[in-house]
């Protein structure tokens, strides 16, 4: 057992296992980190208890303890980065929707930003709906 970037990590033959608290790192954050490791190692997720996700990283070939610790450390670090990206996304979701609407749907009327954000909230609009106007309309 060792502490790798705050996660208690169990090192075995070719594998490193640790548990993540889902109330700290949401599942999509864990998945976001896991995805980046799929080419390098085998990644297994399990649920040992409610709100706990066990992450098992298994090396594709031989790996010594230092390598496994480094792998686990990198995963733990990536969890932080994924969490930051999620926070940036959440903090900017509405303004991004507004900007993209303005970019692609030509919102013309000048108005205060608060009013327009409120209008967006009221709309049921799918984000990033990119139109394909090169289809001829007579078809």
């Amino acid at each position: 057992m060792s502490d790798v970037n705050g996660l208690t990590t169990d090192l075995g033959e070719r594998r490193a296992r640790f548990e993540v608290d889902e109330s700290i790192y949401a599942l999509d954050t864990i998945q976001g980190a896991a995805y980046l490791f799929l080419d390098r190692c085998y990644v297994f997720l399990d649920r040992p208890a409610d709100r706990r996700v066990a992450v098992l990283l298994k090396a594709k070939g031989d790996a010594d303890e230092a390598t496994l610790e480094a792998l686990a450390g990198e995963f733990a670090n990536e969890l932080l980065n994924q969490a930051l990206r999620k926070a940036v996304g959440a903090s900017n979701a509405k303004i991004r929707e507004f900007i993209l609407a303005k970019a692609f749907f030509s919102v013309d009327a000048p108005s205060s930003i608060d009013k327009l954000l409120a209008e967006l909230d009221a709309e049921e609009m799918e984000p990033l709906e990119i139109p394909v106007p090169w289809e001829k309309s007579d078809g």
Binding site: N77, L84, S91
Partner: peptide, 21 residues
Amino acid sequence: RLTTPLRVDPTALAPEVGFFR
């Protein structure tokens, strides 16, 4: 590498920071 070799604190994000990658 696809992972980010940077130690960050997700709770440090100030509300006025805009969207970035």
